[in-house]
Amino acid sequence: MLKSNIKLTILFLLAIFSFSKINAQAWDVPADKKAKNSYIKFDENTAKEGEAIYTKNCVSCHGNPGKANNLKTLNPIPPDLGAAKTQALTDGELFYILNTGRGAMPSFKNTLSEEERWKTISYIRSFNKQYVQVVSKTDPTKSKLVKIKLDVDSLTNKIKVAVIANEIKGVVLLKDAEINMFVSRYFGKLQIGKTLRTDSVGCVLFDFPKNLPGDSIGNLEIVINVNDEIYGEIESINKVKIGVPTNKPSLTEKRAIWNVLKLAPWWIIITYTSILLGVGFILLLIIKNLFKIRKLGED
């Protein structure tokens, strides 16, 4: 009895705690993230591209920046991003918020690329006349030097990911880089395991599930996403034969209720046509009778 009371109390406190956490207005952004800057120079073009991304992903809750048409029925209220409070945040803070999400706000880390995320911020900044951008010293061309190698152990179903950069001075192993692994699915990317960091030789080991359905020969599309302080964000898409071969015929291959007219079920075609023909035949019979009546009355 007492035990369950304690449990209830803890649950209650937890609930209050988590609720107040959601309600908290300020974001707790780590100092290094706060100082992060965009490697893309914000201009009219980036803002324009950002607007398209914003309209797709953000406008439904935040409204149009500066128009104060944000959705005030949500808790916490998604702020108008043109307002001074948002504009007072650093680019790094905005980037962090965009990456992590909170409460009803989803994380955009895996749905938007880094470039897209910075362009969205560029659009938000275009509403602030006083804003002066500090461009990151990260060289975006450096990401092109990075090579991601996948090593699949089909016995243990482990995938080793090695990340290297081919610098002019020689091969550099990317240490302590953030690695995410995803598998492309119907409606988006499925993350495999957790976000890992590369070891001293630039490698990480992922346990790959054994039961993921692949295509007819078991191929899966594996997306590796690398995030490095120096080299930035790199993504590679690999076709790997590691899934369960699945040969599901398409739902629109056979005759079915939901299919196109040409692939309508036979029973519907037969029933509909025969009823229509039957009724048509009877109506013709009636018309014939009318002609007969007319003929009979002729002098």
């Binding site: 009877i282 019979l285 009636i286 009778n289 009318l290 007969k292 009546i293 007319r294 003929k295 009979l296 009355g297 002729e298």
Partner: peptide
């Protein structure tokens, strides 16, 4: 339709109405 009310016409008309 040249209706004269003959027995044949009558029969055809009744039959048609019945079918319909």
């Amino acid at each position: 339709l040249n209706w004269k009310g003959t027995e044949d016409q009558e029969k055809l008309l009744k039959k048609s109405v019945w079918i319909l």
